[in-house]
Nucleic acid binder design. Structure first.
Lengths: 338, 338
DNA sequence: ATTGGTGTTGGGAGCGCTCCCAAAAAGGTG
DNA sequence: CACCTTTTTGGGAGCGCTCCCAACACCAAT
């Protein structure tokens, strides 16, 4: 089939070792020998056999992206694809490959985990949007797999990259307060995910900072899906809030649907602010005021961090990376800002 | 680190060969020996080292998903994530892994191609939404890489899975005709992609079948993006069509924006039918009448076909698979159907 | 000329596995 | 019980590469 090191060596009239040194850019090869070897490589169309190399270097230059399948909902939401794009870009820049893995928390999870992580194909893993109580994280820690989480994790050994969900949510709610609202409701994200918790906490902090007591009937639980936004809004209607902070754009779209059905006008009858700034947020009517988060950057930074771990010597205890990226409020029509 | 075959063999008091036979379920192992080996495997937590195995079997059980980065636009459109989900599911079922690769048609494309395909890490490749004139396909053919295209390709050696874009488009336009429309415009998809071409051809066929001549000013070119839908609609306004067939939902969202700005009501002033049925299509106002395509199935079938190629013996010339899946018209509010 | 560096090259071992072939054990038959 | 067949087991070779160590060439300095 394709030529091997040995054949290139014969072609160039040198030994396998020398060809290997040329390929891997090692010093101690005479320039003219190096040139001769390169010629042989080009002529034969030689490509190093990555699998063979990995067997000895114990590195595959492949990292995994693991998505707990519970968040399959995220597939209808562009969060995940954009994250993936960021991760891929960073991988390309470092000549690493990205292996994708959806993980159902099902009967065969254990088997799939073994299969993926145990077989030695991955140098490290990015874990996206895990639920905080997912056993995946503890498994990875136990097995000493190098990984970086997208979304914070309370365990102090976990490297993570996250956006400032708390600050972003606070900013959003404060914007509503500055517009004069006091009966501000919220539809939360999944309470088992850090983003869900933090956005709720941001809401509470903003309310408290301005001395507005939080009525518990103004807080309804969602799960980031459009449908939960619709249902949540319907439940909220009877409490007649004058504004609502919805913890994701997809839920805001659901909420808009509920409001339309109830005959409420946005922003005239109720102001709405949400979170994510996915592309559709600016395309719909009314355009959403929302908190923008740098999803793509989060993906590429997660990869950068992971690769720095992979490429550092295994024994040196690197400090734990806990990176939080800033968010930004994008004001559009849905909040009724003048 | 982790135990090897040899250690398991020692533990079970047999040879490496026997353990290997047990692992790979080969016959000719006495039941009681087999049991003893299994015990040793469980006790030691042995996991076969996939890289080492690949070196000798020449199979990695990894397939690639290649997306020409020109269609990065597809990232804001759920087409791609849903396809990916279908592909992943099929991979899981067959215990294959999926490697993701975005391919910029840039300066380093050639290098990345070599790097990805030449290094022997992939058993085969799924090519998603390639432009028809992309050199990727011809490279793959030339290098005898096993691959399946998502989206038809004219070359008769190319295995592909596609949806019936032509039939779906015809169905959509005929629906408008049955509603009494005759001045029907269209905003096309990218003319360098099969889906773009076929949806336009479906439009033409429907018009022709009903004896309605196609006015060329009623045909404007788009590229599947929301923005091109908006621009296209703006150009169409002066031709005052009574209905428009938009070749994708994302473009339809752009078109709606243009119509709102111009003060046209949908469906009262103009009927609108589009293509894809992405989740957002039913969530916006007015809900879109659109052609649903089985994206997820397309992804899993593509994988099934590819794996059948991978697992067939290399010499037997398999017949070329050219699979076309049916589409379905989903009638909602935007076409003004009674 | 001898010694000792320094730079360059070649060969062997080994990564963890599969597969082939031969040896050993087991089973059947006259 | 010897003989042949069949099943079961073990050991060696080899997949394509890297890395170590030894060998060699070359040059300057003693």
């Amino acid at each position: 089939m394709s030529p091997t090191l040995k054949e290139v060596a014969r072609l160039a009239g040198v030994s396998r070792s020398t060809v290997s040194r040329v390929i891997n850019n090692h010093p101690h090869v005479r320039p003219q020998t190096r040139e001769r070897v390169w010629q042989a490589i080009r002529k034969s169309g030689y490509q190093p056999h990555a699998v063979a190399r990995s067997l000895v270097t114990n590195r595959t230059e492949i990292i995994g992206m693991v998505i707990p399948e519970a968040v399959t909902t995220l597939f209808t939401d562009p969060f995940f694809p954009i994250l993936l794009r960021g991760a891929t870009n960073a991988c390309n820049a470092h000549r690493y490959q990205l292996m994708l893995s959806l993980f159902a928390p099902s009967a065969d999870q254990q088997e799939r985990y073994q299969n993926l992580l145990g077989n030695g194909y991955l140098d490290g893993v990015i874990v996206a949007s895990a639920s905080l109580d997912d056993s995946l994280i503890s498994n990875l820690l136990h097995d000493r797999v190098l990984f970086v989480s997208v979304g914070r994790h309370p365990n102090r050994q976990v490297h993570f990259v996250d956006v400032d969900n708390l600050g972003g949510a606070r900013m959003a709610v404060e914007h509503l307060i500055h517009l004069g609202h006091r009966r501000i409701a919220t539809i939360t994200g999944r309470p088992d995910m850090a983003a869900g918790q933090d956005r709720l906490e941001g809401y509470r902090q903003a309310m408290q900072a301005h001395g507005i007591p939080v009525e518990e009937r103004l807080v309804v639980e969602g799960d980031f899906t459009e449908n939960s936004g619709m249902v949540g809004m319907q439940r909220l209607l009877s409490a007649s809030p004058s504004a609502v902070f919805v913890a994701s754009d997809m839920m805001a779209i659901g909420a808009l649907k509920a409001l339309r059905q109830a005959g409420w006008q946005v922003p005239q009858d109720i102001a709405l602010v949400s979170f994510d700034d996915i592309p559709i947020a600016s395309a719909i009517e009314p355009a959403l005021t929302t908190v923008r988060q740098p999803i793509e950057r989060m993906g590429s930074i997660a990869v950068e961090v992971l690769l720095s771990l992979v490429e550092s010597s295994p024994e040196e205890e690197a400090p734990v990376h806990r990176i939080v990226l800033p968010t930004e409020l994008v004001v559009r029509a849905s909040c009724g800002s003048p």
